[in-house]
């Protein structure tokens, strides 16, 4: 009953000119309604993989597909089917929350949305109502993250890629964020998210891919993890105590 993966990596490899191997034959797939967590420390290759999916970086080998479209051969078509939330979300400080949302929504192909539609998405991500028409200059990191998530939601793309979305958020905001992700999963989106937060990964992920030094060491489903201590597993893997 294996479904068609929305986000799909096949032997993705990135070798830099200086010979450094940032990603070493990584393969995985994310299906609709699945949250896939890339777990690993700094330099593990999580962000490299994401950058390849978004065409920010050409891969050396392998294929990356979004909704069946090869990102290398037709990047613009592939990007129609993906929404993205980056690790740095400063956005445009001179624009209000709604203006930021409006700009990115239109870039994502949603023309002529009404003000109410924007407000409803902003409400959905839990932004206080008085902030809708305020410039982003005075926003806290959590508030900006919410606007960022709204941007990812409003595109209504089948694939969502989140790069370290919960880093720097307070527990309450992180919790709200998590419930948003679960809500998106319930709507059948394929979600790829990178994190170095083991606990968060265990909470939301349907599948966890453990990465270190560019290699995908293991891919464990939620079921498999139920009986194991993910933290221990992770440390074991990256110290090479368990063979993949």
């Amino acid at each position: 009953m294996k479904q068609q993966s929305i986000i799909e990596a096949e032997g993705l490899t990135k070798v830099y000119e200086d010979g450094h191997c940032a990603l070493d034959h990584a393969s995985f797939g994310v299906q609709p309604g699945e949250v896939f967590c890339l777990l690993g420390g700094n330099g593990a290759g999580k962000t490299t993989a994401i950058n390849i999916f978004l065409g920010f970086l050409p891969q050396t080998e392998g294929t990356a597909r979004i909704n069946g479209v090869d990102v290398r051969t037709d990047p613009l078509e592939a990007k129609k089917h993906v929404a993205y939330l980056s690790d740095v979300v400063m956005l445009y400080p001179n624009f209000t929350a709604r203006q930021n949302l409006d700009f990115f929504a239109r870039l994502g192909g949603k023309q002529n949305l009404s003000r109410e539609q924007y407000y409803s998405v902003l409400q959905q991500v839990g932004l206080q109502e008085k902030a809708y028409e305020q410039k982003l200059k005075g926003f806290s990191k959590g508030m900006r993250q919410k606007v960022g998530l709204a941007i990812a939601i409003i595109k209504e793309a089948p694939a969502i890629i989140l790069d370290e979305p919960t880093s720097g958020l307070d527990p309450k905001a992180a919790n709200e964020f998590q419930s948003m992700i679960l809500h998106l999963r319930s709507k059948g989106r394929a979600i790829l998210m990178s994190t170095h937060d083991i606990f968060r990964a265990k909470e939301v992920a349907d599948t966890v891919g453990i990465m270190n030094e560019g290699k995908m060491l293991a891919i464990k489903s939620r079921k498999e993890l139920e009986h194991e201590d993910l933290e221990k597993l992770y440390l074991n893997y990256i110290h090479g105590k368990v063979a993949a």
């Binding site: 990007k79 445009y92 990115f104 994502g108 941007i151």
Partner: peptide, 11 residues
């Protein structure tokens, strides 16, 4: 400010 990546994540 991270907006460049956001823009380019679109088509």
């Amino acid at each position: 400010s991270g907006t460049l990546k956001l823009i380019l994540s679109n088509s």
